[in-house]
């Protein structure tokens, strides 16, 4: 099975690899894993508390090319979106964009889960320590 060009591009040249301070109240961290292949994915968003816009997104994924490409693409899509818009990102959009074969669909599910986990974490923090406006 050959990877699509887009997967190879994201895999060999992943965007937004790195990490942010997870204790920062404006940073939401999502950590998810897929035991069947041993993958683990960390995805972080940094949100402007006033506009609710995601200003930065970082990821680090240990896993196959499709898992790395899915999370890399996810961080690209997240930047500039509001938290609510980001919540609407569906794994099927990732599948389409990267032309993932059926056996790799779970990688896109993982990326969607990571996005949702990061947003949930951010919202939890925002409730605990409301931004000073």
């Amino acid at each position: 099975m050959a990877y699509s060009e887009k997967v190879v591009d994201h895999y060999t040249n992943p965007r937004n690899v790195g990490s942010m301070d997870k204790t920062d109240p404006n940073v939401g961290t999502g950590m998810v894993g897929a035991p069947e292949c041993g993958d683990v994915m960390k995805l972080q968003i940094k949100v402007d508390p006033i506009s609710g816009i995601i200003e930065d997104a970082k990821f680090k994924t240990f896993g196959c090319g499709s898992a790395i490409a899915s999370s890399s693409l996810a961080t690209e899509w997240l930047k500039g979106k509001t938290v609510d818009q980001a919540m609407q990102i569906k794994n099927t959009e990732i599948v389409t964009e990267l032309a993932l074969p059926p056996v790799k669909v779970h990688c896109s599910v993982l990326a969607e889960d990571a996005i949702k986990a990061a947003i949930t974490d951010y919202k939890k923090k925002a409730v605990a320590a409301p931004a000073l406006v």
Binding site: M31, V32, G33, A34, P35, E36, H106, L110, D113
Partner: peptide, 11 residues
């Protein structure tokens, strides 16, 4: 087995 992985693995 595996499909519901995310929810089954403790953080």
């Amino acid at each position: 087995i595996g499909l519901q992985g995310t929810k089954d693995v403790p953080p």
